[in-house]
Simulated scan of single mutants.
Amino acid sequence: MRALFDVSHPAHVHLFKHAAAELGGEGHDVFVASREKDVTTDLLDAAGIAHSPLTGVCDGRYGTAREWVAREGRLLRLVRRFDPDVVVSRLNPAAAHVSRLLGVPNVVFHDSEFAGLLERVTTPFATVVCTPAGFGRDFGERQRRYEGFHELAYLHPARFEPDPDALREAGVDPDEPYAVLRFVAMGAHHDVGHESLSPADKRELVERLEEEAGLTVYVSSEGPLPADLDDRRVPVPPEAVHQLLAHADVYAGDSGTMATEAAVLATPTARFNPYGDEMGNFHELHEYGLVRTLHGVSDFVDAAVALATDPDAGDRWRTRRRDMLAEKVDVTAYMLETVREVAAA
């Protein structure tokens, strides 16, 4: 089998890395088309996955449009040259369009009900759209639902094991109480019209976790931090962030992805959500009791501090995680089964 993975975002690296590596290890021909965005290529390099960057983020008013037009052209040439049996992507319009044009099956993974235009220009061209069972949209016969979350492709116990030595190598004591915070830049297509935490809000959250809970605070931020918080940036390399999350006493932030990652790792999680609606995966995570989502800043900060000062929170989250895992699948195993089936059809 010849499989091409289109990886255009750091989250896609985590989603597809185990499947790509396993197929390659079985002797299949695997090609990864990457993109110069944030730490995408760094994560691929750290995972030992060979890849070829096709494009990078373009600035300016029409930068995204220019980049994706260029990506479609370069991907078209690549697919003609590599001649894959299947193309695998995460809601990537270029991959879907090129695959349809050349008659190559395209498996799309999708988990956000708020993808808007990106969804409308991608899913009609896909052969198969794989979504979590609780996903709130219907794509007809091409849709396949599975019991899981994207994050269980790389954080399921079959794929991830906490390793305290990985933190010690980065200078972090895994036995020291600490919090992990994540602040997003609110620059994605689904963020338009919404505002998240202000510098003053971030400062209050850090100060209260340090002073009231007695925690060391590590901050991951897409954008600039207030100057007085810059020394709290996470000290581990990007590929070790999940180890940092797994050993944390609490996670708090406005990132949906990292909130889900923390939750499935049994780290007590407080999430700030500036949107009025909710994604299907969070409805499920709320039912399991693995995430507390707040829409007001004061309530969010209070919830984070309450979890950080609750000595029983960790035990509750571990019990709830076991309940969740009993009902969910190893998403990488599901992905491999689907890719093999579609490629052979």
Results as ranks from 00 to 15, higher is better:
217 V>W: 08
331 V>E: 11
304 A>L: 08
239 E>H: 15
232 R>C: 11
90 R>H: 14
47 A>H: 13
156 H>Y: 10
153 A>L: 06
235 P>I: 10
34 S>F: 02
34 S>V: 04
246 A>Y: 04
193 G>E: 10
223 G>L: 05
50 A>N: 02
220 S>L: 13
194 H>D: 00
110 H>I: 00
98 V>D: 04
197 L>P: 05
232 R>Q: 05
206 V>G: 03
113 E>H: 02
110 H>K: 10
29 D>I: 01
13 V>G: 10
70 A>M: 10
343 A>M: 09
339 V>M: 07
221 S>T: 12
203 R>M: 00
33 A>E: 04
169 E>S: 13
184 V>W: 01
305 V>L: 08
298 S>G: 15
176 E>R: 15
130 C>E: 11
53 P>I: 07
75 L>C: 08
248 A>H: 10
164 P>F: 07
162 P>F: 03
256 G>T: 03
329 V>C: 13
22 E>F: 01
95 A>F: 06
307 L>W: 02
292 R>F: 01
297 V>Q: 03
173 D>G: 12
336 L>D: 00
255 S>P: 11
319 T>G: 14
206 V>K: 04
23 L>Y: 04
208 R>Q: 09
96 A>F: 03
135 F>N: 05
224 P>A: 14
178 Y>K: 02
74 R>C: 01
318 R>M: 10
257 T>N: 13
228 D>V: 07
244 L>K: 03
47 A>N: 09
135 F>R: 02
325 L>M: 08
170 A>Y: 02
321 R>C: 03
203 R>T: 15
336 L>V: 13
76 L>C: 02
198 S>F: 03
130 C>A: 15
192 V>T: 13
